Every structure is written in structure tokens, then in C-alpha cells.
Amino acid sequence: MLEQLAALSDVQIELHAGGLWLGNRRQQMGKALRDYVRPHDERIESLTGQRFGDRYFNELLLDSRHRIDSEPPIRAILAVITLGGDGMTMLHRIQQSYYRDGLWIGDREQLVSLAAEQNIERNAFISAYDEVDLAKHLNESQNWLMRLDGSGYPTLGLERDGQLLPVQVSRFYGDPEGIRQHVTQMLFS
């Protein structure tokens, strides 16, 4: 859906991370977590058509050496944006790496390699990654969520002429063309 919206010439997408798996909400990976998330992921797949890879379900989620953690990918996306890269592209590559390919994206080296796909130099990325003010970003995200009267993620909003309008994203799961048409209508009505 975001790719469809990003293709609209009158739309500029600004990403705001929610931080679902931070602090005491970080969960140990292993069979219990896999069994917990699998029905949710299968529901997402049936609603949206987005595929989850076998390696994700049968290897990554079972790897108890890791804790599911939102911080590394959020830092990586914000670092890429800071360095002039495309945050949407980084988000997409992180999601593909994790959910499709079953790669651990909590590893900074994996994130360095994804940033390098945008010709972002390793040391610059690491420096920007380490300097991200995560607390400030998450606070700003919560403020946007409240302004949109959102209840979770994903939440989308359209800011037009100083007015913030919620986009009912759940209506368009599996229908990216529909959300593009809906937002186009919102822009010009």
C-alpha cells in the first residue's frame, strides 16, 4: 500500500515507528513466540497477500539466541533517512530480509549491508545509527498516533492544508490500488 501511495506525485510519506517490541515487551524467540505470532502472520498473509517465508517460520523464529526487538530496524531506517537515503526502501528491505528471507535484522552488520544497497558508507551509517534519538522519535510517533485517534500500527494519516485526516487502512488490506484511489480522492475533494 505504501508503494502505491509513494508513487502519487502529491504525496510525501513520512515514517513514524511505533516500537512494538521495545523494553520489557521484547520477547525471547523460540517455539513459544513462533506459535504465538504464526496465526497473526497467517491472518496478515490472508488479508494482504504478503508472503512469509519458510525460513522465517521454521528457523528464525525458533532461534532462541535472539529476542525480537524493534530498536535495531528503527535506528537503521532513521539513520538511512539522516544520511539522505530512502527510508521506505530501507523499511521494505528490512521487512523482506526478516519476514521473507528469515534473516536476523537485529544484527547491525545485516543492517549495514542493507544500507549499503543505497550506497551508504558503513562508518557513516554506524555513526548515524548510534546517534539516533530513539526516545524523541517514539514520542513524536505517539503524538501523531493520538492526533490521528489511531489505536495501533499501521495507522495512516493524510495532512492536507494543515488538517490531519485519518486513512482507514484496514479497509484496503490486499487492495493497494484501492488505497491509492481513496487517498487521491481525499487529496482532491
Rank of each mutant, 00 (worst) to 15 (best):
M1N: 03
E3G: 11
Q4K: 14
Q4Y: 13
A6S: 15
A6D: 14
S9H: 05
D10S: 13
E14I: 15
E14R: 14
E14K: 15
L15T: 05
L15R: 04
H16Y: 15
G18I: 10
G19V: 14
L20V: 10
W21L: 05
W21Y: 15
W21D: 07
W21V: 00
L22H: 12
L22F: 14
R25G: 03
R25C: 04
R26N: 06
Q27Y: 07
Q28D: 12
M29R: 07
G30H: 12
A32E: 11
L33Y: 15
L33K: 08
R34E: 14
Y36F: 12
V37G: 10
R38T: 15
P39Q: 15
P39F: 15
E45F: 11
R51N: 05
F52V: 04
G53C: 00
D54T: 10
D54R: 12
F57C: 01
L60G: 08
L61W: 08
L62T: 07
D63T: 09
R65M: 05
R65W: 08
R67G: 03
D69W: 10
D69Y: 11
P73E: 04
P73I: 07
I74N: 03
R75Y: 10
L78F: 10
L78W: 08
A79T: 06
V80C: 02
V80Y: 01
I81G: 00
G84H: 02
G85K: 00
G85N: 00
D86W: 04
M88Q: 14
T89F: 06
L91I: 00
L91W: 10
L91T: 09
H92C: 00
R93T: 01
R93W: 01
Q96M: 00
Q96L: 00
Y98W: 03
D101E: 09
D101G: 01
I105M: 09
G106M: 03
D107T: 03
R108T: 14
A115I: 00
A115Q: 02
A116C: 02
N119D: 02
I120W: 03
E121D: 08
R122Q: 12
N123L: 13
N123T: 13
A124H: 11
F125A: 02
I126P: 00
S127C: 07
S127A: 15
A128M: 07
A128G: 04
Y129Q: 05
D130P: 02
E131M: 14
V132A: 09
V132N: 09
V132Y: 10
H137R: 05
Q142W: 12
L145F: 04
L145G: 11
G152P: 02
P154R: 09
G157S: 03
L158H: 05
E159T: 06
R160L: 14
G162E: 06
L165N: 03
V167L: 08
V167S: 03
V167G: 04
V169T: 15
V169F: 14
R171D: 12
F172D: 03
Y173C: 06
G174A: 09
G178C: 06
G178P: 03
Q181S: 11
Q181F: 07
Q185V: 01
F188E: 11
F188L: 09
S189Y: 11
